[in-house]
Design a protein around this nucleic acid. Structure first.
Lengths: 186, 186
DNA sequence: GCTTCGAACTTTAGAGTTGAAGTCTTCAGG
DNA sequence: CCTGAAGACTTCAACTCTAAAGTTCGAAGC
């Protein structure tokens, strides 16, 4: 026999609304409007990252690798950066960068060589294949993003972008990179 | 000798604007308005997570532990969930949950015991101390969040919340939890 | 020119995660 | 009963990240 009313065991996964209601129930001082913004933003961002992860996996790229490619492409022109600088931009320790570059170099996405002008430094450079991979990933991402914002008209998009940028500026001003390495890339 | 014009080596960390300009330069098909929204959202979310991490560290909590506490509190009433259910909600493998619960149980934040009604199951329950920690973290978080949204008036907050919720719904409809475990908590 | 300090990267040890295999319990047949 | 299959959790090996040394090179002082 089964008692559906007696052994709940696993409640259903909470929706955004249920979660906010639960927060309010457990912590009365909470402003539901604020929490709606914050929780929706976090959940949305997480789902987007999952979607990006699936897309890049399609190309044989991990999310970690994609981030390195992005940093190098954004740096422009010769597509060169040092491990330390890369680590700072991705929000990793230099040690982690060393290993990541190992892997990516062995896959042919980047090259690693000593800077002959200053032999303490190392230059990580995007390869043609790496750049190509980034372009493919970018094509997928832009389609996904366009689709995501499909329901918003131009005015709404602009407003949303402006408001988010204002909030970002506020956070960045309040946290002047306190302990270094906390940027991470988009 | 040093040639400031010859050996750039480390370019400055790119601002949001610089980054978007770089994307456009390298990938012409990009819609700058879409990218403004997406990049601002991602960067904002990342900075917020760093801020949360600092706050919870103040209380001797890791972000990982805070997420478990949140899931249990949101579940309500007796504050009980199984390891598997917790893993699903946090977006972890069951194996990782096992270890996390080990740590948290040894710190007194939760208890772990077999379900006598169904001895295959394990019940993880929030302790009084765990609940107290969650409340303290929540107090800090709500102050931070209120401060973050300070410059937005009520109308703007409502609009922002609604738009983000619309986008979230769109992502969730498009990704029907495809391979399980990808939710993670807010 | 030799030495010392500092900078940039790598190496090492330890914590945390994943994926796969293993254990224990329950349930349905035979 | 006894057996087989499925479910829930744990254990194990491999991988990735962090923090703290260690290594190598360059620059400044004597």
């Amino acid at each position: 026999m089964s008692e559906p009313s007696d052994a709940p065991a696993d409640a259903a996964e909470p929706s955004l609304e249920e979660q906010i209601a639960a927060y309010q129930r457990e912590f009365q001082a909470l402003d539901p409007q604020v929490e709606q913004v914050v929780s929706a933003l976090q959940r949305l961002n997480r789902r987007m990252n999952v979607a990006y992860g699936r897309q890049t996996a399609t190309l044989g790229l991990s999310n970690a690798e994609w981030e390195v490619l992005k940093a190098l492409v954004v740096s422009g022109a010769p597509y060169q950066l040092g491990p330390g600088e890369l680590a700072k931009r991705l929000g990793l320790t230099p040690a982690a960068m060393t290993h990541r570059i190992d892997r990516m170099a062995s896959e042919g996405l980047v090259t690693r060589e000593r800077d002959e002008a200053n032999r303490v430094r190392v230059i990580v450079e995007l390869t043609g294949e790496g750049r190509e991979k980034w372009l493919e990933a970018m094509r997928l991402a832009s389609v996904f993003e366009e689709d995501l914002l499909q329901d918003l008209n131009g005015e709404e998009r602009q407003l949303l972008g402006q408001v988010l940028t204002r909030l970002l500026r506020r956070v960045e001003d309040a946290q002047p990179d306190a302990d270094g390495r906390l940027s991470d890339l988009d």
